[in-house]
Amino acid sequence: MKKQKHVLLSGPYLFWTAAFIIIPLLMIVYYGLTDTSGAFTLSNIAQMGTPERLKALWLSLLLSLIATGICLVMAYPLALILTGTKVNATGFIVTIFIIPMWMNSLLRILAWQTLLERNGVINVALRFLHLPELRIINTPYAIALGMIYDFLPFMLLPIYNALEKIDQNVINAAYDLGANRFQTFWKVIFPLTVPGMISGITMVFVPALTTFVISDFLGGSKVLLIGNVIERQFTQVGDWNVGSGMSLVLMVFILISMAVMQHYDKSGGEQVVL
């Protein structure tokens, strides 16, 4: 009886996983490894090897690494400050950081386009103040900025959660045993937040690596990221096989990055989930 209940309860989840995760994934593997007639081939994967696609992949890796790094550097101190503030204020401040996420991310990226444009809000203000204009729209800089803005909450929240979970007694114990503030941070607090950082890094790096919307809107379609290359294969060229083949290559990069992350997650503690 009890066992049956378990199966019933997990039914919706199992159905969901099968219908929308496993079957689509298998379809991508199938298309990626076959040609239009359905015969096995590796040529779709080899398609990634052309200079223009390698360049797009390299640029995507570079931009998402930069965006992840900057997010981490910005989010960590912020999370420290948030944890340090009084309980009442914290809820409010965290909400402030989450509110933008209530809005559609496409809308937020379009807003950045309007802000950064030549006659956009920022440049009009700068011109009024007789300051030099900001010319980063349609460059990789604008794309990196868009990634950082869009994904910063995904870095902030797991780190904040990890920090908040630390038992104050552990910190007090460190002080009691003669550790100074820096030692307490480096030997106690920092290691305890590693799982949070790992979640944060994964949650920023993976969407940044695969984005095509941000590069389209803030890059003026001039900067081609690997997400754009794959998107074009599906929506414009209509070649599902090559598109799937390249998606498989991209998945390998994501798996590598996750494996590296797991390796550094030495503490092996529970993953912080939003």
Binding site: T50, E52, R53, K55, S221, L224, V229, Q236, V237
Partner: peptide, 15 residues
């Protein structure tokens, strides 16, 4: 013909 155009368009876009 389509494939040829797409191939060269990719080259232009990633140039």
């Amino acid at each position: 013909g389509d494939a040829l155009y797409n191939e060269y368009w990719d080259k232009v876009k990633s140039y």
